[in-house]
Write a protein that binds this DNA or RNA. Sequence first.
DNA 1: AAACTTTGTTTATCCACTAGACAAACTTGA
DNA 2: TCAAGTTTGTCTAGTGGATAAACAAAGTTT
Lengths: 392, 392
Amino acid sequence: MNQTWNQHVVKKENKTLVLEKVKEKAPISRADVAQKTGLNKGTVSSLVSELITEQLIDESGPGESSGGRRPVMLLFNQLAGFSIGIDLGVNYLLGILTDLNGNIINEKKVNYEEFSYQEIVDQLFKIIDVLTSSAPPSPYGVVGIGIGVPGIVSKEGEILFAPNLNWKRIHLKQVIEKQYEIPVIIENEANAGAYGEKKFGIGQKFEDIIYVSVGVGIGVGLILNGKLYKGNNGFSGESGHMTIEINGLECRCGNNGCWELYASEQALLRRAEKLKIQPPTGEELTLQTLNLLAEQNDEKVLRLFEENGDYLGVGITNIVNTFNPNQIIIGNRMSSSEKWIKSSLKNRIDKHTLKQHQNDLKIDYSQLTTHSTALGVAAFTIENFLEVDIKL
Amino acid sequence: MNQTWNQHVVKKENKTLVLEKVKEKAPISRADVAQKTGLNKGTVSSLVSELITEQLIDESGPGESSGGRRPVMLLFNQLAGFSIGIDLGVNYLLGILTDLNGNIINEKKVNYEEFSYQEIVDQLFKIIDVLTSSAPPSPYGVVGIGIGVPGIVSKEGEILFAPNLNWKRIHLKQVIEKQYEIPVIIENEANAGAYGEKKFGIGQKFEDIIYVSVGVGIGVGLILNGKLYKGNNGFSGESGHMTIEINGLECRCGNNGCWELYASEQALLRRAEKLKIQPPTGEELTLQTLNLLAEQNDEKVLRLFEENGDYLGVGITNIVNTFNPNQIIIGNRMSSSEKWIKSSLKNRIDKHTLKQHQNDLKIDYSQLTTHSTALGVAAFTIENFLEVDIKL
DNA sequence: AAACTTTGTTTATCCACTAGACAAACTTGA
DNA sequence: TCAAGTTTGTCTAGTGGATAAACAAAGTTT
C-alpha cells in the first residue's frame, strides 16, 4: 500500500523536526526553532508543549537576551530513557547502557572462546540484566535492546549465517524479545558500526559514508544519502569477498582472491606467522602484540603493516570508484593500527582512484573504536523508540 | 533548511500519488484509485478533476459494471507533452522523441568520427530541431531535453570529464538551455541507462538494480531503494576502474588491473586482434563482426566471448557481494552478445557469490538495448516536468 | 521613562482530508 | 417488470493542524 498524506502525518513529521532541531542545537529557544525549521511560531509552541508533557524536552531557564525579552531555553531530555547496545563478537561480548544521546552510562565486557550458542545466550541475558538494573530511574526506562553480530542478518532480524560463530538461521531476536518484552533489533556488525559513527562518531557531518570494518574478516557498512543501505534482502556489505586478484588465494566462500584474504586482521597475522615474527617472551601473536612491535620500530612488522594498508587501499579504491563517497571510515580492530597503515593506505587511494573522487574524500579512522557497533545498535533502538513514541 | 510539512505538501503528494496510480493501472476508476491509495473517495474526486483540468488525465468513457453503477475509466494522457532524449555516444548521436509514457514517437541517429565539440553541438541542435518539429500538437509541447554522456557529470549538470570524447569541464547544459529555453538534464550514460530500464524496460519490478553498461568502457548505474544513487558529487558508478587483478594490466586511469581492461568491448576486440581473428572478406574487426563469427560457431570467437563473460562475472560478483541487489542488467553494446557470454557469466556468479545473495538475484540483459540511455534521460525530463507541474 | 525588540501565547482564518449522506446508474432476482 | 441491492461519484458538514496577526510579557536602548 502506498503512503497517503494527511494532517496526522504532517503533525508527526513536524514534531519530529522540532525534536531533531532541539537535539541538534540545544540549548535553543522556541523562537529560534521556528526560525530554523521554517515553522510558524505558534506551531512550534504547541508542539514543544506536547513534547514537554511527554518529558522528551525540558525547559532549562532563561537564556541571554538579544535585545528583547529573554528566551526560555529548551533541552533534549536525554535521560528520559535508556538503550542497551551489544556487540556480539566472535570471542567477546560487549554491552553498553546509553542515554538517548548515546552517552555511555555503564559498560560490561565478557571474553570467551568457543562458547556454544546456549552459553552465549546465557551470558547475553546476564549482561542485559546487569545493565538494565543499573539504569537510573526515568520516565521510559530501557526502551530497547540492539545487538550487532558478525554475520548476515535478514531484514526481519533473523541471523541467517554467521560463519565465525558457526551459526545458521538463528532467531535470537524472538528469544530476547520474549524474555524482556521490549523491542529488540539485530543488525550486522558493520552496518551497526557505520551507523554508530554516523550518529555519534566521526561521520556525523557526512551523508555518504563507507565504513570498513576490518577485524577477523572485512565487512562494509554503507551510509548512502544519510541512511543505512541494506540491500534487497539486508545482506549488503559483504565486500570482504570482493575479488582483487583473479587467480589469487582460495577463500572458503568459494571465490578466489577475496579482499579479506589480503587485508584483514587474520591475513596480517597469517603473513606475520609466515615471516616467523616472534612477539617478545612467548606472548601470543596477535594484532596487539604486532602493534607493540611496531611501536618499537620493528622493521619487519612495519613493512607488514604497510603492506596491509596497501591491500586495504586496493579494496577501498574499488569501493570509492563505485560509490563516490564523502568519507571512508576504517573501523573495528584494525583501526588500532592507524599509525602504521595510514600512509600506505592513503598513498594507494591517492594514486589509484579517479581524480574527481578525491576532491571531497576524507579518510578517517573510527572515533568510537571498539564501541562503534554497540553504539550503532543502541542508536537504532533509540531512533525506533522516538519514532514510535512521537506518533502518539 | 529542513523540509517543513503543511497542507500544501500533503496535497501535492496526494496528487502525485493519484497520478502515479492512474499511470500504473490505467484504465482505472476513481473508486478504484481511492481504494488502492487509501485516500477518501471525495479527495480522489477533487484531485482527479484538477488533473483533468490540467489535461494530464482523460476520461475514457464507462467501464464494466461490477454489480452497480458503471465506473468512469481514467487514462493518463500520455500525449499531453513530449520529451526529447539524446544518447551522446563516442561516435554516434541518437535522439528520440517520446510521449510522457516513454513511447518512442520519432528517432534520429547520426554517426561520426572524431568530431570536434562544436561539430557535435551543431549535430545536436539539428537533431533537437528535427525532433521538436515532429512533435504532434499538445497542451505542453516538448517539456524538456535530456542528454546522456559517456563521462562524469556533476550534480549541477556540468560534464567534468569525458575521456573518450576528450572533453573536460563542458557546460553543455547552459548552451542547450539558452537555445531552447526548456529544462535540460545532463546525466551519465550508465545512470541514464539504469533509469531507462527501471522505468520502461526490464527493471520495472525491481528496487535494487545494478545496471552494467558494457561498451567501449564499463560504467555502472545504481538503482538503490528504487532511486538512482549518484554519490556524494554525482560520480558514482565508475566501477569499470575496479581492480580485479592487483598487478594486472596498466590502465590510463593510473590504476592496475581495472575491470574494463578485461571485460569491456575494447578488451574483447584487443584480445581478438591478438589472436589474429579475421572477419570475412576484409570487414573491420568490431563487436558486430565478432557476433557474426560467433553465429557461425567459430570456435575461437566463442571461446573469446566465453572468457569475456567470465571476466564480466568477476566484477559483477564483487558488486553483488557489496550491494545485495535484486537484479543485474547487462546493457549497452555488449548486450547484443548475450547468447555467447550468458552461460560463463552466470556460471561465475553462481560459483563465486555468497549463497545468500543468489536467492533473489536475477541476471537480465537490456530490454531497450541501444535505447536505454536515451529513454532514461527522457524519463528524467518527464519526471521533472510532472513534479514541477503538479506543484501548481 | 519612552521607544523599541524579542519572545511566546492566543485568536481567527484557511485549507485539505474524512465521514457520511445522497443521487445516479447499474445488476439481480422474484 | 419492478423492487431491492450495489457501486460510483459528488456534495456537505466537520475535524485537525498550520498560518498570520494581534497581543502580552519581559527585556534593551537612548
